[in-house]
C-alpha cells in the first residue's frame, strides 16, 4: 500500500515537471501552429541561466527566475522575429529552422562549457516533507505548484483578457483575426516569447534537481511531445493533465516493469489515445484539423 502511494507521489511530482516543460511547447503549437523542436533547448538555456546567475552573483535558482524568465522571453521574441517570421509562409521551413536552432544551441553550450556537468544548488534542495512513509522533495513540489499556477494563469488569461481572446482568435482563424484589427505578427512574437519564458521558468525550477548537460533538453522534450499530443493540442488543461498521465505511467512502469521501458510505454499509450481520440484527451473535437486549414 505504501509503495503504491509512493509510486503515485513520485509520478505526480514527475508529472508536474513534464507538465511544466510542455506548457510552453503547447502554447507555441496551439497559437502559431509550429512544432518548436528547440523547446527543450530553451529549457536547457533556462537551466544554464540559473547556473550563470548562481556562479557570478551567487543567486539561488529560485531568485534567478526574475532574471532568467525575462531573458528567455526576450530571446523567444528575437528568435520569432528574425528566424521564424521571415519564413512565415513556409511552415515546413519553420520547423526545420527550429530543428537547426536545436543543434545550434546544443553545440554552442557544449563548446562554451566543454561538456562539463553543472548543478545550481538551492537551499530548498535540502528540505524534504515527510508524511508517514512518504518523502516529498520540496524542489519537486515547487515544480508541481508552478505548473498549476501557470495553467491557472494561462487559462484565466485567454478567457478573460482582451489580449488572451485575441490570441484565441488568431489560433482559430488568422485571416479573420487580421480583419478584426489584430496584429497577427505581434501576437506570434509575444506568444513565442511567452512560450520561451515558460521554458525558462521550467529550466530554472529544474536546475536544482538535475545535473546539467547540453543535451538535457532532449530528455524532457520527448515527454513533452507525448504530453502535448496526449492532452490535446493547444489545450492548457490538456498539457497539465497530460503531464501527470505521463509522469504516472513512467512511475508505474519503472516500478512494475523496467525503468528502461518508460519511453516505449509512453508512446504505446500515446498511440492508443491517438487512435481513439485523434484530438487528444482534452482537445476540442476537430481542433486538430483547424491546424491544417489554409492559414494566412
Amino acid at each position: 500500500m505504501s509503495s503504491l502511494l509512493n509510486i503515485i507521489v513520485v509520478g505526480l511530482l514527475l508529472g508536474g515537471i513534464y507538465g511544466l516543460v510542455s506548457m510552453g511547447l503547447n502554447l507555441i503549437f496551439g497559437v502559431i501552429r509550429i512544432v518548436n523542436f528547440a523547446q527543450g533547448e530553451l529549457v536547457m538555456l533556462g537551466m544554464y541561466g540559473a547556473y550563470v546567475c548562481y556562479l557570478f552573483i551567487g543567486l539561488d535558482p529560485y531568485l534567478s527566475i526574475f532574471i532568467v524568465v525575462p531573458a528567455l522571453f526576450l530571446f523567444g521574441v528575437i528568435m520569432q522575429r528574425f528566424i521564424l517570421q521571415p519564413l512565415q509562409n513556409e511552415p515546413m521551413m519553420q520547423i526545420f529552422a527550429t530543428f537547426g536552432l536545436l543543434l545550434l544551441l546544443q553545440n554552442v553550450v557544449l563548446a562554451v562549457t566543454r561538456g562539463q556537468g553543472y548543478t545550481a544548488p538551492s537551499k530548498l534542495s535540502e528540505f524534504v516533507i515527510s508524511v508517514g512513509p512518504l518523502n516529498i522533495s520540496v524542489v519537486r513540489l515547487v515544480a508541481l505548484v508552478a505548473v498549476t499556477a501557470a495553467a491557472l494563469f494561462l487559462s484565466w488569461f485567454v478567457k478573460n483578457t482582451m489580449a488572451g481572446k485575441a490570441i484565441r482568435a488568431v489560433t482559430q482563424d488568422r485571416r479573420a483575426a487580421r480583419l478584426m484589427g489584430i496584429n497577427v505578427e505581434l501576437a506570434f512574437m509575444l506568444t513565442f516569447g511567452a512560450g520561451a519564458a515558460l521554458a525558462g521558468l521550467a529550466g530554472t525550477l529544474l536546475a536544482p534537481i538535475y545535473t546539467m548537460s547540453p543535451q538535457i533538453g532532449g530528455n524532457f522534450i520527448m515527454a513533452a511531445f507525448a504530453v502535448v499530443v496526449l492532452g490535446g493540442l493547444g489545450s492548457v488543461w490538456g498539457a497539465y493533465i497530460g503531464g501527470f498521465i505521463i509522469g504516472l505511467i513512467e512511475a508505474f512502469a519503472g516500478y512494475y516493469l523496467d525503468p528502461a521501458l518508460k519511453t516505449a510505454i509512453w508512446f504505446l499509450v500515446f498511440i492508443g489515445v491517438l487512435i481513439v481520440k485523434p484530438g487528444g484527451l482534452f482537445g476540442i473535437a476537430g481542433a486538430e484539423e483547424v491546424g491544417l486549414r489554409e492559414q494566412n
Binding site: K165, R168, A169, Q172, D173, R175, A176, A177, L179, I284, A287, V290
Partner: peptide, 9 residues
C-alpha cells in the same frame, strides 16, 4: 466570404 467567425468562441 462565409463570415469566417471564430468557431470555438
Amino acid at each position: 466570404e462565409g463570415g469566417r467567425l471564430f468557431p470555438f468562441m
